[in-house]
Write a protein that binds this DNA or RNA. Structure first.
Lengths: 226, 226, 226, 226
DNA sequence: CATGAATGAGTATTCATTCAT
DNA sequence: TATGAATGAATACTCATTCAT
């Protein structure tokens, strides 16, 4: 890899810095930290065990992160970034917007299923950094929610979806996903992931009422259905 | 429950114990503990401050609870018990089962809105007692879920609700509620509680598709709708 | 000792406080701390060794002093208080003011000779608490200097001492004592203490010039000698 | 000194070393070290900040001094050497021996007044290197004291000074100077330096007694005054 | 020669728990 | 029964020193 090649600058005095080494090291540290913080909890994780896992000295960790807390937070942040990449990638493989929803939900649940350590870290984060105004998860969620709102607004304009405020839709979906993810995490998932995703989206798309009941309830829930 | 029964020894000598005193004290301790654990976090809460808050000696706490952890867990458990009472009470005021769902969702969100300390405790619990197989919240949820499944099974039998597996419905609703509750807790609620509850239930009852789209998607999502 | 008797207050709940015990404990701790801090230096003295010396737990020390630093400072302060008592006591045994000076100087040098740990602590104090505006030693010195200035002013009024500003006299004497004390401490004293005290005071009282030289230098040094 | 001599290897190949460069670098390091050690204390001074101050790598310091402690000690030693040069230079400008005393005292106090960092270092030295038999200051003092004893012996022989043991005189003067220097350092000087020096020497030369009192006390203090 | 990345020994303080009173 | 004095295990972070480059 050319980025990792050490191009000798001819007259550099002393031990040259290797920035790519530092970046690689940073990632290795975050990997180990995420794993161990999730495994044992933030408080119970002596940075020594992180260092041991990596076979480096404890002091080395402090060369890359100024404190235990900052290391932890960096690990959470990287996790959320990866979640986003994962969901985005899943959406790109699908054309139909309604199917994108299923794909996104599946990717979301799948990410935390494959990396339960990040679910754990989200909990730890809140428990330990109670003051931080907004948990990292919600920072990322809010950065992301706009595109979904647009998507639903478009579908409403196209007449494919009822004229419900897009925010209401994204809220219900986001929260159902969020709640399902944690429930899976805490109690163990029993249904296949994709089925789970499809079931959630199915309920939200079609509702659960029979046509007869739907008529009976009439205006109350069935706002302007064009 | 049998473990909490106080077996009366028939003819106690001397000054009769006042069991209600002990019970009252227990509750006072749990109140103070819930408040302080939520305020400062489990680890950061010195039992001394709990004792101070109650104007008792630290040793006294140990007469009522065998350890800090058990005190904490008891506080969480009592919170969940109260949540259940609160939701049950709300349901009893409503006749129509579909409206019961709205009432329950409203009571659920309302409880955590009025007592955010219990949301905090749920997080703390997981962060600290990572080993306990199942969080208290889910123990209570599972003890409770059966009656909702029956309710939906009944509605399906009555033809008011599509023939969707009741478990799927309770899952979506529970998780949407759970997710909404934590989202409210973390980011601050912006919508009135009852509106929030109604919006969730509305989406789940009616779905978001337009009739036209519903037809277009046909069988895929609209399993046996009788 | 009546002050140490535990008078039982009839209806005191719980383990009663024993204030005299606390005071005794405090002194024991200060004794051990002064000794060990002087022996090993402030930084090199783990409070554990102080605790071990006293056969108590380390936590107990923190019940009496809020930090290592405050324990140290308390030890220094108590030392200076004792120095003062020691010097005062020596003065009271002597009538003639000029002899009081010798007595005070002897007591002063004697105190640090008997308790070299306090000389050590004075140095440690400055080295460690560089910020504290004024070292404990000088706080006590300034609290004490007034009475000596008065004494010299009186002697000048009586015509026993030349009309030199009393402050000049106390400065020279204090500093000569202070310097001698540290020199003794650092290099080991070689002369008997009382001889040393007498020699200092002798030089200061009589000066070192011969009468002939004194005449030759005339007015320059011999301000109004009445 | 032989240990510091650089034995020139006659015909060095390649780029000739510049020994003066090394010497200059050594001095720069000592300057920075003295300043920083005094400013922040020995223990609190990270060698990194010394390196930063000089814009060199931390490793470079170790090319000039084998350890932090030796660097510190070298800085103290150089300070004492400079003190001596300073005092010697002051004496050379004055002819009369008695005036030399004033000049020396003034130079001594002036040196520490201009370079309070060296007073600080003397304290740090003792606090940190409690084991070193004799502080650097006293090593230099003893190397220097002989010439003063000779000076006083000469003055006694000339009949200008009473027949007091010269050691007694040098002790009182040295210690008064030493004590005054530290007092100035700790509490801030209030009198002009030269006045301070003159006042000390004045008291020591003329004493403080009035002629009348001097007669009254007679033999007691006035040993053989020729 | 010079550098700075890596190391890991070293330490004050807190707080759950016990138990003498 | 209630108390609070005593305890000691447990833990993040720094920085002198080394040595590969």
């Amino acid at each position: 890899m050319p980025t990792e090649a050490k191009e000798k600058r001819p007259a550099a005095r002393g031990r040259p810095r290797d920035p790519s080494l530092a970046a690689r090291r940073r990632h290795e540290i975050l990997d180990a930290a995420a794993k161990l913080f999730a495994q044992r909890g933030f408080a119970a994780t002596d940075l020594q065990v992180v260092a041991d896992e990596l076979s480096v000295g404890k002091g080395t960790l402090y060369r890359y992160f100024p404190s235990k807390g900052r290391l932890f937070l960096a690990a959470v942040d990287r996790g959320m970034r990866r979640l986003r990449e994962c969901v985005d990638a899943a959406c790109e493989t699908v054309g139909d917007p309604l199917e994108q929803i299923v794909a996104a939900m599946g990717a979301y649940l799948g990410f935390f299923d494959a990396h339960p350590e990040f679910a754990e870290l989200l909990i730890q984060e809140r428990a330990v950094f109670r003051d931080r105004k907004k948990p990292t998860y919600f920072e990322h969620r809010e950065a992301n929610i706009g595109r979904w709102r647009s998507l639903f607004a478009g579908l409403i304009a196209e007449g494919r979806i009822r004229d419900v405020p897009p925010e209401q839709i994204t809220n219900v979906l986001s929260n159902a996903g969020y709640g399902t993810m944690f429930t899976n995490f805490f109690t163990g998932r029993r249904r296949p992931l994709q089925a789970q995703a499809r079931e959630i989206v199915d309920v939200v798309l079609h509702g659960i009422l029979t046509p007869a009941e739907r008529v009976r309830r009439g205006a109350s829930g069935g706002r302007k259905s064009r």
